[in-house]
């Protein structure tokens, strides 16, 4: 089995590999290359690596300039400072003209841990999702992170890759498909469907096992692409299962939960709940303590599924 590693390390390694295939790939960072792990690319291709210092807004504008000049910029910083500080540069200089810019933004979500609420982006998916033409990948493990990087490079237009900080186990396989906009159904079960994204996919699988032990059949969907959204998959699940539970390390407003709710609106008969951050900011703490405090554990998922079915 492939080794556990931080998604940001998988991201940095994938960039370096991509760089070997394509000299149009350039990488931009904002004084965080040792945290986003673009340092791996920088060590191999110093002439294609540009540090902009603490100047995210300028970096996003410059990325558009690279793209308008036929290159493929991958831009990295923390998710909060990329999607937040430089939001309007992304909106007007990149998304509006459909510039071919890729964002590999790390330290997303609560799993940032101790740095606290000022650094935990719980809204980045929402911010990117409202931008027309933006593709959004939320990889769940190192293998999927690498696939997301290569898929992003193959798309003509802006792509956001949400890169989490913790070291995580590999839960997908080398030959698992990664087709943008096509969800992967990992597990079948007719009682409840757990639709998860990113780090929460693993907990969804753990919850499904626990439910199976109690005689409850749970499907698990790995929604690695949030945009374009696989509405067909959600509708299929709504027809076969009695209940749907979404799970994300993000606000329940504007992310996966909202996307599923938008599809389910007008569909009758299926019970529905959203697990995620319930319209509140994060705070400092060890990631595991935070996941407990915010109701984002496998046990929380299991409990929510049982509650919906009862």
């Amino acid at each position: 089995m492939a080794e556990s590693k931080s998604l940001r390390v998988a991201y940095g390694e994938a960039l370096a590999e991509l760089g070997a295939h394509d000299d149009k790939v350039v990488v931009l960072d904002a004084d965080l290359s040792h945290a986003t792990m673009t340092s791996i690319f920088a060590a191999k291709y110093p002439e294609r690596f540009f540090n902009f210092g603490l100047a995210e807004a300028n970096m996003m504008g410059a990325a558009a300039g690279f793209a308008h000049s036929g290159l493929i910029p991958f831009v990295s910083t923390f998710a909060l400072f990329g999607t937040g500080r430089a939001y309007e540069q992304i909106r007007n200089s990149i998304a509006y003209p459909k510039a071919n810019v890729k964002f590999g933004l790390s330290h997303s979500g609560l799993s940032v841990g101790e740095d606290g609420g000022s650094h935990q982006s719980i809204e980045d998916i929402a911010l990117m999702r409202v931008l027309p033409g933006m593709t959004i990948f939320v990889p769940c493990d190192p293998l999927e992170t690498k696939k997301a990087v290569f898929a992003a490079a193959a798309i003509d237009g802006p792509v956001y890759i949400r890169v989490a900080r913790p070291v995580v186990e590999v839960i997908t396989s080398e030959d698992a498909p990664f087709i943008p906009g096509v969800a992967n159904v990992l597990r079948g079960g007719a009682d409840v469907c757990i639709i998860a994204t990113g780090l929460m996919v693993k907990d969804a699988l753990v919850a499904a096992d626990a439910l199976a032990a109690k005689g409850v059949g749970a499907s698990v969907v790995n929604m690695h692409t949030i945009k374009p959204f696989d509405a067909d998959c959600v509708l299929r699940m709504a027809r076969t299962c009695k209940a749907i539970v979404t799970v994300e390390e993000h606000s329940v407003i504007g992310g996966l939960g909202s996307a599923v709710a938008e599809v389910l609106a007008g569909q009758s008969g299926v019970k529905f709940a959203r697990i995620g951050i319930q319209d509140t900011f994060g705070r400092s703490g060890k990631p595991a303590d935070l996941f407990k405090a915010y109701g984002l554990t496998a046990e929380d998922i299991e409990r929510q599924c049982l509650a919906l079915l009862s």
């Binding site: 101790e114 609420g117 000022s118 705070r283 400092s284 303590d289 935070l290």
Partner: peptide, 8 residues
């Protein structure tokens, strides 16, 4: 630490 008033 979680629930400390001293944030990161």
């Amino acid at each position: 630490q979680i629930d400390s008033h001293l944030q990161g």
